[in-house]
Write a protein that binds this DNA or RNA. Structure first.
Lengths: 331, 331
DNA sequence: TTGAAAGCGCTAACAG
DNA sequence: CTGTTAGCGCTTTCAA
């Protein structure tokens, strides 16, 4: 397991050239004869030489690796982004250091420190936080933010959340709903704010006044949503004819609670989710929801980060990707 | 964005000591006075010094990073493992280089090469392949395999797949099924082989002879399963009273096809899946399925790899984790 | 077209 | 308890 690694020096000796020449050949820097090139490549193959990335990084001050911070890789939405990032950056010969912050700000900080120490060339930051506190730490490295929008972010990729909220709400309005519950993530994240803005816009367009009692803010989990809606039904009955949520799991919980309570979906109440996780396609009834372009986001982020790394700046600081409405049986 | 990085030399100068002393303090190697320690720590804090990981790695020949190869991070089962690995290794101050092979063997190879060049201290290998072809490449690095079992693997963590197949099948048998369709992944992976073995064992225990026409092998995707079962129903009718599958998505497809064709689940046909993805809990009816202990697998893998890294060998080369049956409404 | 040699930032003998 | 110093493996001037 532990034969000593062969280095560029060994290769140089075997090929009867200098290390400089080997280096030139490896990096295709030119300045060597066809004959030397072949000889060097041959010996490299023969002895199965792999350059030492750490030495290269130390010398060139570029690590060819990218840090990625995700709140929770288990969340399909984030997993998809990471998946696409991986494919994108492999193509450009970068490795990904993926850090799952587990929705914990302290872990997020630890991870950042770690990445900095590892000399990452850039960071894709999908933060759980709405504001980055210790942003000072990462000011020396190019960063592209996805989804969440910290105040002090420079380059930012996110979905058109307002359009998402608008489309979902409008779908319900068009189908006759007039009392639409907005079940939203209680966190005051920019994404959620914008989805609510879309909700309001749609209401206004249909001349439906905003009713404060129709907005409930909860922690975005199935169990939370279930509990809250059950209590609501018991207390006030079904005083709404539609529900718009800021994530699919909430919507799913609503469907289940309502169905169990004897309401029919979509006849009595129509429900729309957000994110189009695969669950929403396969539950019963399948959920109407908003699709975010995860692949597009990942690719934009990748391109922007590469640009930032290579040129120190990026033309388009803020990219907003369109969303689309997926109409299924719940509306 | 690009102020020059400060190094251990700068710290040493400012603190009025040698770099060796700074190094000692940083690494808590002892051999310095309380007073020096404080002085050094103070200056480190003052100038916000972060050690250069590449230099450390080059010098010590340990990178403090672990490579993780996953077939598809988008798959909840793998995502969970990665999530737990991340938490585990962060605790031990290792970073994770996560490589999504996208179920592509060539990418897998590229990733391996990449990891080797990055000098990872170890690799957690969740392979898409049943055999590693280019295993020669990674013989110089400690590797722990999860799930799939390549012939030449040394250290291996996996679920008790046979028990899984057994439990699922037995559940159907106990509830009266006698003609149980085995819908399996067509790939001849060890995991699948073992699940089938469990299926056979349960049949035998109940004195039900194995019927070849009740086994169908397909590519493990929703659409595939759907198509195949639809054709089967049209051709031969519903000649079975239960279905055991090797993954939840197949089971889900079966439920949908059967329901649409007018069969009732579980009255007419009982269906069991495998993996307990969250979908299976929230679809309709919720699926009976087999839960794998992803957290346990990740932790075992982490511990084994650490052991391998630290001592060059591991006591328990093969760890089999128990699975459990989750009975829901589909059986 | 090539080689010699200086370092990148750090650790670990060794010497004091 | 502390400092000096020799590299780790590579790239990159500079000189030939």
């Amino acid at each position: 397991m532990a034969e000593k690694k062969i280095s560029i020096i060994d290769v140089a000796q075997k090929a009867g050239v200098s290390t400089a020449t080997v280096s030139r050949v490896i990096n295709k820097n030119g300045g060597y004869s066809k004959k030397t090139e072949e000889k060097v490549m041959q010996t490299i193959r023969e002895c199965g030489f792999t350059p030492n990335g750490n030495a290269i990084s130390l010398r060139t001050n570029r690590s060819h690796s990218i840090g990625v911070i995700v709140p929770d890789i288990t969340n399909e939405f984030f997993a998809k982004i990471v998946h696409e990032l991986d494919i994108f950056f492999l193509k450009h010969r970068y490795s990904l250091l993926i850090c799952d912050s587990n929705e914990d700000y302290q872990l997020e900080d630890m991870h950042i420190r770690n990445l900095l120490q590892k000399n990452v060339d850039g960071i894709v930051y999908i933060s759980g936080q709405d504001e980055i506190k210790n942003i000072g730490n990462i000011q020396s490295v190019p960063v592209v933010y996805i989804d969440r929008c910290p105040q002090n972010a420079d380059v930012l990729i996110h979905s058109d959340n307002k359009a998402g909220g608008y489309l979902a709400t409008k779908e319900l309005l068009k189908k006759g709903c007039r009392k639409i519950l907005l079940m939203r993530d209680l966190r005051y994240a920019s994404t959620i704010r914008n989805r609510k803005a879309g909700y309001l816009e749609a209401l206004e367009e249909f001349g439906v006044p905003y009713d404060e009692s129709l907005e409930i803010s909860i922690f975005p989990e199935y169990d939370q949503a279930k509990e809250v809606l059950e209590r609501l039904l018991k207390l006030s009955g079904c005083y709404f004819d539609g529900i718009v949520t800021t994530c699919d799991m909430m919507a799913l919980a609503c469907v289940h609670v309502l169905t169990k309570a004897g309401y029919r979906i979509p006849e009595d109440v129509k429900v729309a989710g957000f994110d189009n996780i695969s669950l929403s396609e396969f539950c019963n009834p399948p959920l109407t929801t908003i699709t975010q372009d995860t692949k597009g986001m990942a690719q934009c982020a990748g391109k922007a980060l590469l640009e930032l790394i290579r040129h120190g700046e990026v033309k388009q600081k803020r990219t907003v990707l369109p969303v689309s409405l997926e109409v299924r049986k719940s509306t």
